[in-house]
Design a protein around this nucleic acid. Structure first.
Ligand code: ZN
Ligand code: ZN
Length: 817
DNA sequence: AGCACGCCGACT
DNA sequence: GTCGGCGTGCTC
């Protein structure tokens, strides 16, 4: 009997790949283990066993696997089921989901290594110059990578030369697989066993009386050992005793101290966790009870709680309840909201049980979380994570909390899988028969709609915690202010008045400037041209901090130009105003106040964002100027004033969700203002003070906004009434994109008629030298989504059968909002 | 997606 | 001639 396995490879191909295995291997292997398999000409990839069977492939001979990597599976069945749902629903390959899910360190890849063939005797004269260079390099170094040869020879096509050497028997090639995950060893110290008894210790201290620093270290270690009764890290000792590591090293060298290593989890938290979580207020308790009641009947609850209503405390109680039941909880947050402050806060409650998972984590840290989860370790009972933590190996999930449920960053755009974490979370919870709690101060229309339809339970929390007052929101008519010359730069007199007052009272200010459309571009005042990106169809934006012009789409940058490239005049001027300009204006208006800016430029570093937030919380900054990132801060208790510099760009953004988003954004930003004894103030500058959304924001009329927007969605066939699938075509040849997109659209229209929109060029029609064109498919409520996708796949297959179209990249994005 | 292979323009 | 760019096709 022949044995085979089908494996998942981390590539965007729908096909299953079948490999031959021996009977013994078949016995040993189980689904979810990793195997190293040869793939393509020579490469070895890590694959995941998907199924084990005895059906030989008919059209080809299956290769044999290279080796088995695990002795137990690294994924679990429920997880695979969830991955399959994602691959199926979002129309991508299982391999792509796997690639997004697995830590890189799990996915070993081979590298071709060149080594000397010791068996053959080589005469230098037999070798050509380049061959000799390689040969000579190998006498200094036991093996070379292909890339090494490229740099040694300083040319790109090295394969023919290497192959020549292999033929001559000078070198051998082999594939090297390396384990990327190396357990980290931590240095510990203890008193050398010679000095363990107290008499010996006394002696030792006498001896060291003339080396006070060293004596201090020994004493500190002694007290630490006595007090903590656990291994002492070198780092801890150094810190406690105030001694440098060189002093400790000296002691180790003298055999007074003994050093040893223990393998440690990189990810670990101190502290026990405080079982007695804070008591809920009456209102919170009520909401908590309601959530529990909803969960009796429905799998999903939407907790609609205004900003600062204390949702987190309710979450904590819900998490505690699951832990008491012995179940895991996943707490999902937008990446940017996953700050150390929040993690610390949860650790206070749940201590070691908290595991954190996000993209800023290194590969090794991810592996540790993964392995803890596989083992269903105590350390992974509460998982706090961003989008990708949904793909982890949960064992016994009881509850998923999706905080800030309305956040668009829950939707992944590039690369595939283009999944929406909120929706995928609900599916994951269902697999475990667990519950999902969606939380937001400004629910997305689709979630609120689902709640209204009775699909989700709705729990409302309408008062702010400790009765913090809702801020007073004032709309400032920019047209009027300009007309009456009441503007200083981009600041209206009202804004300046309020700012002055707030600063005089010693409170803080947040100024919000939407990034979209406000990046400053350069324009020639003589001829009107503005420098364009050579690779994309956009104007370059000016970045003051490096005096550079940059492209937001491809990262192209050049030094700031002094003269216009078109007419040669030195009449280049910046147009539009970004956060940098606002910051500069604030500095002129309030020269003695401290201003900070938070945008993509200033939050670049690993903890850039947190640094700014912390600085602001500690009141080192009076005025913070920023983009939408600002909606994610935690507790800004000294903020009294929030200014929205220009609401119109938000509202006019060409997207069917622009109005909903504007409402959410402004409501969230406004939520930063005010505290217990102080009513916050929000000023919104706009040319359209009568715009419905602005009226709704200023009166907190979420319901009215919902009703009105839902009407629009009905009328214009948009989600949540209709569903959307966007198909994007990319190619560097303009005509080919047109032809391909037209062909595709024609095929689609035969089936879906007028529910196919486009093809149309997006606002930025060329990115990284590729032309883009979009088709939108609107799917009516009664039309089967699965059937629609099947039809698309069919069309896609025939599309790919056309030779001229094959080179056109097709990106299918399900629920592209 | 990678990655080979092969065709063709462009330099030493 | 040789080098490297890019288009095409395949991966069990
Ligand atoms: Zn000009
Ligand atoms: Zn660009």
């Amino acid at each position: 009997m022949l044995h085979f396995i089908d494996v998942i490879l981390p590539i965007p191909l729908q096909k299953a790949f079948t490999y031959h295995i021996t009977e013994a291997e078949a016995e040993f292997l189980s689904v979810g283990m990793r195997v190293a398999v040869p793939f393509g000409k020579s490469k070895i990839y890590t694959a995941l066993v998907y199924s084990i069977h005895q059906n030989p492939p008919l059209a080809y001979d299956a290769k044999t696997i290279h080796q088995i990597i695990d002795d137990t599976p690294v994924i679990v069945a429920s997880q695979l089921k969830h991955w399959e749902w994602i691959a199926n629903y979002y129309m991508c390959s299982l391999g792509e989901v796997m690639r997004a899910a697995m830590p890189n360190a799990f996915m070993l890849e081979s590298e071709t290594m060149i080594s000397k063939n010791e068996k053959t005797e080589i005469l230098d004269s037999e070798l050509k110059d380049e061959e000799y260079l390689i040969y000579e390099a190998l006498s200094r170094q036991s093996s070379l990578k292909i890339q090494d040869v490229v740099s040694i020879l300083d040319k790109k096509r090295v394969l023919p030369i290497i192959n020549g050497l292999v033929k001559k028997g000078v070198v051998n090639l082999h594939e090297e697989i390396y384990e990327k995950y190396t357990p980290k060893l931590v240095r510990y110290v203890k008193l050398h066993h010679n000095h363990k008894s107290s008499e010996k210790l006394q002696e030792l201290l006498e001896v060291l009386s003339r080396a006070p620093k060293q004596r201090e270290v020994v004493l500190t270690l002694f007290t630490m050992e006595a007090a903590l009764k656990k291994p002492i890290k070198v780092a801890e000792l150094a810190e406690k005793s105030g001694a440098s590591t060189s002093i400790i090293k000296a002691l180790i060298d003298k055999s007074i101290l003994e050093e040893y290593h223990l393998q440690m989890d990189r990810v670990q938290f101190e502290g026990e966790g405080d079982a007695s979580a804070k008591r809920l207020s009456e209102v919170q308790q009520l909401a908590y009870d309601e959530v529990e009641a909803v969960f009796q009947e429905k799998p999903v609850a939407l907790l609609y709680g205004v900003t600062s209503s204390g949702k987190t405390e309710i979450y904590v109680q819900l998490i505690q309840k699951q832990l008491d039941l012995g179940k895991q909880v996943l707490y999902l947050l937008p990446e940017i909201a996953l700050t150390t402050q929040l993690v610390n806060r949860l650790q206070i409650y749940f201590g070691e049980k908290v595991a954190v998972f996000h993209s800023r984590y290194s590969g090794n840290e991810r592996v540790e979380v993964w392995q803890n989860m596989l083992a269903n370790s105590e350390k992974a009972q509460v998982v706090i994570g961003a989008r990708s933590s949904l793909l982890l190996p949960f064992r016994n999930l009881g509850l998923i909390i999706v905080d800030e449920e309305h956040e668009q960053s829950y939707k992944q755009f590039d690369p595939a899988p283009r999944y929406h974490a909120r929706d995928a979370a609900i599916v994951l919870a269902n697999i475990f028969k667990a519950k999902t709690l969606l939380g937001s101060a400004t629910p997305s229309l689709e979630s609120y709609f689902n709640a209204r339809q009775g699909k989700y339970g709705l729990v409302e929390l309408k008062t702010r915690f400790n009765n913090v007052l809702m801020p007073d929101i004032e709309l400032v008519d920019l047209a009027d202010k300009y007309k009456r010359k009441r503007m200083k730069g981009h600041f209206s007199d009202r804004l300046i008045e309020e700012m002055t007052e707030t600063l005089d009272e010693g409170f803080q200010i947040i100024l919000f400037q939407n990034r979209r459309g406000f990046s400053p571009i350069i324009e020639c005042t003589t001829c009107g041209t503005s420098p364009q990106c050579p690779n994309c169809d956009v104007s370059l934006t000016y970045h003051q901090y490096r005096d550079q012009l940059r492209c937001h789409y491809c990262g192209y940058n050049s030094a700031m130009l002094q003269t216009c490239q078109a007419c040669g005049n030195a009449t280049l001027d910046t147009k539009g105003f970004g956060t940098e300009q606002i910051e500069a204006e604030v500095k002129t208006l309030f020269p003695d106040k401290k201003v900070a800016r938070m945008d993509l430029d200033t939050t670049r570093g690993k903890y850039g964002f947190e640094k700014i937030i912390t600085g602001f919380e500690q009141r080192e900054v009076d005025i913070l100027v920023g983009t939408q990132m600002l909606t994610k801060g935690l507790d800004f208790r000294y903020v009294k004033l929030v200014g929205i510099m220009n609401a119109d760009n938000l509202l006019n953004f060409p997207d069917f969700r622009a109005h909903e988003r504007s409402y959410q954004l402004m409501a969230q930003v406004s939520g930063r203002a005010g505290r217990t004894d102080l009513r916050g103030k929000v000023l919104i500058q706009t040319y359209n003070p009568h715009h419905n959304i602005l009226q709704q924001v200023s009166t907190n009329a979420y319901e009215a906004m919902f009703t009105e927007q839902m009407n629009e969605r009905h009328n214009f066939k948009y989600p949540p009434i209709y569903r959307l699938i966007k198909i994007t075509f990319k190619h560097k040849d303009y005509n080919r994109v047109n032809l391909a997109a037209d062909w595709y659209a024609t095929s689609l229209k035969q089936l879906f008629k007028t529910n196919v929109l486009g093809p149309e060029f997006p606002p930025v029609s060329r990115i990284r030298n590729l032309y883009h064109k979009n088709i939108i498919i609107k799917i009516p409520p009664q039309q089967s989504l699965a059937r629609t996708k099947e039809a698309i796949i069919k069309i896609d297959n025939s599309f790919n059968a056309v030779k001229d179209f094959r080179s056109v990249r097709v990106v299918i994005n399900v629920d592209n909002y």
